[in-house]
Design a binder for these strands. Sequence first.
DNA 1: AACACGGGGTC
DNA 2: GACCCAGTGTT
Length: 345
Amino acid sequence: MPDFTPAELTRVRSALLGWFDRNGRDLPWRHGPEGRRDPYRAWVAEVLLQQTQVARGLTYYQRFLDSFPTVHALAAAPQEAVLKAWEGCGYYARARNLHRAAQHVAAHGYPHDHAGWLALPGVGPYTAAALSSLTQNAAHAVNDGNVRRVLARLHAHPQPTPAWVQAHADTLLDPDRPGAWNEAVMDLGATICTPKAPQCHRCPLSPWCQAAALGTPTAYPAPKPRPAVQDLHAVAVLIGTPEHAALEERTGTLLGGLMGLPSQSFDPAQPAAQAQAIAALCNRLHATPGETLGQVTHAMTHRRVTLHVYRATGGPAPQDVSRAALSRLDRKALNLMTPLLTPPT
DNA sequence: AACACGGGGTC
DNA sequence: GACCCAGTGTT
């Protein structure tokens, strides 16, 4: 299939930008003129929206900006406060990286270009292109899930590689309005060219869309094979009460930086492993194991964690749970003690 | 190039 | 249950 001629390119850009000017989303981080968005608000939003849907990101965005209205406020905050504001949002490395990067920006100022953004922790190819184009009108095309889907359909490419998507996004990018163009493609992908039920009849690009012409837009791009979900089992102890419990900071990559009930993983295939784990855990904590409180299971994208929760006494001092940043998993574990307080859904 | 990394929406 | 979401960092 031939690529667009220069004349077609002009019409395609005009069609999408015209649609965007009428139908672009009014989002709280689109503060300031096109191509000159407020860098702090745009940055927080871009990080927050990594692998997070806009509808969901909206609530977290408001909460985060209430907590840290400026990059200086963010830079000056302790990491626990940042994670507390991020609590429940997932991918907590984003919050840790954003915090570190904010300290750099507070000291040295905002990056001046794409390469400068890219050097910040937590800013990769997508976010650097987004921020340089949205805040500085730099001609860098974003490549995210929306762009990938829109371009895969436009060219009826079932398995677009990142390089293929980037090359086509670069070609299509409107050099006169790069910031608006990037926002436009993402808005189109999020509202019209959706994964499941695209509204091709309302799409400004349908005259050029090969997938629409074939009548099978949802076939592009083909679903990616996903690795199997791993089952993880651990024992955990509740020392104190659900409101005032002993907590430990989770180290490592899984939920790193968050607080949680002291825990110890075990292999459920080994008959005695659970008993050994609770004994070893209590031994490490200098605590005395008590009765079992039950178990909770929490599904993540790539893990299914089952926490077997025991009561225990002694050991580390309980602390105020409401002030700590906890994962959903630990919230569920604490709820074992207070099922009656759980609001009806 | 392949993994690891949350949590929730939607079909 | 499958698939996805304004991806990044590590191995």
